[in-house]
Simulated assay, not measured.
Amino acid sequence: MTVEDIRSAAQRIRPYVVRTPLVPALWAEPSRPLWIKPETLQPIGAFKVRGAFHAVGNLDESVRRRGVVAYSSGNHAQAVAYAARIHGIPAHIVMPEQTAPNKVEATRRHGARVVLCAAGQREQVAAELLARTGGALVPPFDHPDVIAGHGTIGLEIAEDLPTVDNVLVPVSGGGLAAGVGTAIKALCPTARVFGVEPELAADTAESLAAGHLVDWPVDRRDRTVADGLRAQPSALTFAHLQQVLDGVITVSEDEILSAVRELALHAHIVSEPSGAVGLAAYRRGALPPGRTVVVVSGGNIEPRLLAEVLAG
């Protein structure tokens, strides 16, 4: 995938997504200037609309009219459901039983049929739905169209802050970091791109250190409060991550929740734990000096958890 693929994706999704701003973090340390990229402002509250609209929009019309199937712990589910509604096609979404209720209900509100499944069974149940419906699979990260759609975030960062030094991106399945990293490395070649993931789901950090994908069992990854970061990279996304990431920073559960609170109180941005890991990494102070952008990937936090975090 190239930056031209990402530019093409930007043209396709322009009518459906918000071009999110870079918000200066005036409360951050003056010696380490910080900007927030709030993908919480997207129509479904997360960056996933970018990849979903590009993938669905790129389907041949004869295929698209049969509908789409997706599997997701939440934000991709909502994004595909929303894209399907806009295109007037059916959507069947497979979600784990432990998915936050607010994300399940939000997906249903877009008109999708939600099928709940046991942990680790998403792909299998989705394959069964594909066989029954004849629809097209829109995976959460393992597809060039999805990666290119997410890469449009990197285009916007490069346009708004061409002198950026560091970009911090959450890592789970790797589609977001792969796309953003590809765009940044092409347009801001001196910038560094760092993936960020929870210590309790640090499979990407271990895989990059080993030079090959390392499997973490589902129950091990599911320990983290950052429910959107419990997936593992595919062969496709991992190959991209090896090329575009300058490193992976891991953060603790306490650091993640502290970052959720900081974003709410200082940036007035509601972030889910998965979206706040970049700020947690910035706070850890493990970055080289320079102008830093944190991608806040989503804001679909469970209300009860948000109340607990804000209560301190």
Rank of each mutant, 00 (worst) to 15 (best):
Thr204Arg: 07
Ala10His: 09
Met1Gln: 06
Pro15Gln: 04
Glu39Cys: 01
Asp145Gln: 11
Val63Ala: 14
Phe53Glu: 07
Pro303Thr: 04
Glu197Tyr: 04
Arg65Phe: 02
Val293Glu: 04
Asp246Asn: 15
Arg7Pro: 07
Arg284Glu: 05
Arg85Thr: 06
Gly67Asp: 12
His54Asn: 15
Arg50Cys: 03
Leu236Arg: 15
Arg85Met: 10
Ser8Pro: 01
Arg113Thr: 15
Gly298His: 02
Thr292Trp: 03
Pro144Trp: 08
Val196Phe: 09
Leu229Tyr: 03
Asp203Trp: 08
Pro24Tyr: 01
Glu255Cys: 02
Ser274Met: 12
Val214Tyr: 04
Arg132Gly: 11
Thr152Ser: 12
Asp246Ser: 13
Pro144Ala: 07
Glu253Ile: 09
Ser252Pro: 05
Lys37Met: 03
Phe53Gly: 06
Glu255Val: 00
Ile93Pro: 13
Leu287Asn: 07
Val146Ser: 04
Pro96Thr: 12
Arg291Glu: 13
Arg192Lys: 15
Leu130Gln: 08
Ala191Trp: 07
Arg304Asn: 09
Ala77Thr: 07
Thr163Ser: 11
Pro303Gln: 12
Glu272Val: 08
Pro162Thr: 02
Gly111His: 14
Val17Arg: 10
Gly211Ile: 04
Leu265His: 11
Gly290Phe: 08
Glu123His: 09
Leu305Ser: 02
Gly247Tyr: 02
Gly74Leu: 08
Glu308Gln: 14
Ser271Met: 08
